[in-house]
Simulated scan of single mutants.
Amino acid sequence: MLSAEIAEYYRRGGERDRLAEGQGRLEFLRTWDVLTRVLPDPPAEILDVGGATGVYAGPLADAGYRVHVVDPVPEHVAAAATRPGVTAALGDARSLSEADASVDAVLLLGPLYHLLERKQRVSAWREAGRVVRPGGVVVAALISRYASLLDGFVHGFFDDPGFRPLVEHVLSGGVHLGGVRRDATPERTWFTSAYFHHPAEVAAEVTDAGLVVERVVAVEGPVWQVGSGLDGILADPDRTALLLEMLRRVESEPSLLGASSHLLAVAHG
């Protein structure tokens, strides 16, 4: 299960509202856009591993999918289970209780963030491949190796002397060590311990788990660096539609992968 530090971060609600506005809202819209193009048609059965409070499971259920959330945080499971059409249970991405070839698609939209060792991440991919039906799709979210470096300048985090060591550690090996900000409150704590992927290493992890990589795409691309200006864009339906259309056109461009805050890897069993 999760380490005490990571579990406490989520129990405090550190990610509760992250996908509601600005950069987080763009992440949600882009992830949803990709899912609508790669998932099988409803009423396919989807296993949402690390699905937290059901931020994606809820809309998927509304769209007609049968969705089951597995998450290691009890509070997340309780919240996800209140969403209409969604079931939820405690579980670990590295050792799923689901039977072999029992679902049509698996989402890993969080677990790989917090598996700091490569063998653990491969185990999560392998478990996803075990429970998905032959030819089924597995979609996983990853944090980009350069996300904290860029975020530091977008939001002025480098003003805190404790931030640079976190970035240096990520750049040297991909591991982000959770830290406390100088103005620490539950809402002002640096992101908890996580692994930030280099785009070039994703395919090898997937392949080692016995899956076939279809593609790796940039979620936000470099546009998330607009910062607070994103709110104005996303408040306008026409500008939002244009933004999503243009990002869709360049989502697989290799030269832009490292500039995105998040990546999505799409694989098949």
Rank of each mutant, 00 (worst) to 15 (best):
residue 7 A to Y: 12
residue 8 E to L: 10
residue 11 R to S: 07
residue 22 G to A: 07
residue 24 G to Q: 09
residue 27 E to C: 11
residue 28 F to N: 02
residue 31 T to I: 15
residue 32 W to P: 05
residue 36 T to R: 15
residue 41 D to M: 09
residue 43 P to I: 05
residue 44 A to L: 11
residue 44 A to R: 08
residue 51 G to P: 02
residue 57 A to V: 05
residue 61 A to W: 03
residue 63 A to F: 05
residue 63 A to P: 03
residue 63 A to N: 05
residue 64 G to Q: 10
residue 68 H to M: 08
residue 70 V to I: 10
residue 73 V to R: 00
residue 76 H to G: 07
residue 76 H to C: 12
residue 80 A to M: 09
residue 88 A to Q: 00
residue 92 D to T: 04
residue 93 A to M: 11
residue 99 A to K: 05
residue 100 D to V: 01
residue 101 A to P: 01
residue 102 S to E: 08
residue 107 L to P: 03
residue 110 G to S: 04
residue 111 P to Q: 00
residue 113 Y to M: 06
residue 115 L to Q: 07
residue 117 E to D: 14
residue 117 E to M: 05
residue 117 E to H: 10
residue 118 R to Q: 14
residue 118 R to C: 09
residue 118 R to V: 13
residue 122 V to H: 05
residue 123 S to E: 15
residue 125 W to L: 12
residue 128 A to K: 02
residue 128 A to L: 08
residue 128 A to M: 09
residue 133 R to F: 13
residue 150 L to M: 15
residue 150 L to E: 12
residue 151 D to S: 14
residue 151 D to M: 12
residue 153 F to T: 12
residue 155 H to C: 14
residue 156 G to W: 13
residue 156 G to D: 11
residue 159 D to E: 15
residue 160 D to P: 02
residue 163 F to W: 08
residue 163 F to Q: 00
residue 164 R to V: 11
residue 165 P to T: 03
residue 165 P to L: 03
residue 167 V to I: 09
residue 170 V to Y: 01
residue 174 G to S: 03
residue 178 G to D: 07
residue 179 G to Y: 14
residue 185 T to W: 12
residue 185 T to I: 13
residue 189 T to M: 09
residue 190 W to E: 06
residue 191 F to C: 00
residue 193 S to H: 05
residue 194 A to Y: 10
residue 195 Y to N: 07
residue 199 P to S: 08
residue 209 A to I: 00
residue 210 G to Q: 07
residue 212 V to D: 14
residue 219 V to P: 00
residue 224 W to A: 01
residue 225 Q to R: 11
residue 225 Q to T: 15
residue 228 S to H: 12
residue 232 G to F: 11
residue 236 D to V: 00
residue 237 P to I: 10
residue 250 V to F: 13
residue 252 S to P: 08
residue 253 E to N: 12
residue 255 S to C: 03
residue 255 S to N: 09
residue 258 G to N: 02
